[in-house]
Design a binder for these strands. Structure first.
Length: 108
DNA sequence: GAAATGACCACGA
DNA sequence: GTCGTGGCCATTT
């Protein structure tokens, strides 16, 4: 399938997320010039291959919580572990402090 | 080609 | 803080 430019843009943005930071779907969508279609970001990641080098685990929802795929409950902890491994701390309900760990796209 | 699906977000109450 | 509704775009069936 011919990967659309939009998807490539999403991958590009996700790949630019620095270590120890997280980004929301809305931000990535906006940077990818598809603001309003945050679903595309999730969809892109959902269809992402297993051998991807993209830090998909740094992409979380607006609530600062992990969205992950409901189908892959087998590794629901994986994303959390990866983030913790990068120095990101989780709140009480596994909520990340966006004010602190949110990625600043202006850096790019 | 059309309808259904999807790791969501913004807004109003 | 929660809950319900609308909307966007690409992929899949």
């Amino acid at each position: 399938m011919k990967t659309k430019n939009t998807f490539r843009k999403i991958y590009s943005v996700v790949a630019k997320i620095p270590r120890g930071k997280v980004a929301t779907y809305g931000q990535i969508a906006g940077i990818s010039s598809i603001q309003g279609s945050a679903k595309l970001v999730g969809y892109a990641l959902n269809k992402l291959p297993d051998s991807t080098d993209l830090p998909w685990h740094r992409v979380i929802n607006r609530s600062g919580k992990i969205s992950y795929s409901p189908s892959r409950n087998d590794h629901d902890n994986l994303q959390r572990i990866l983030l913790e491994n990068e120095g990101i701390e989780f709140g009480r309900n596994e909520i990340i402090e966006l004010s602190k760990y949110l990625w600043n796209p202006l850096n790019e």
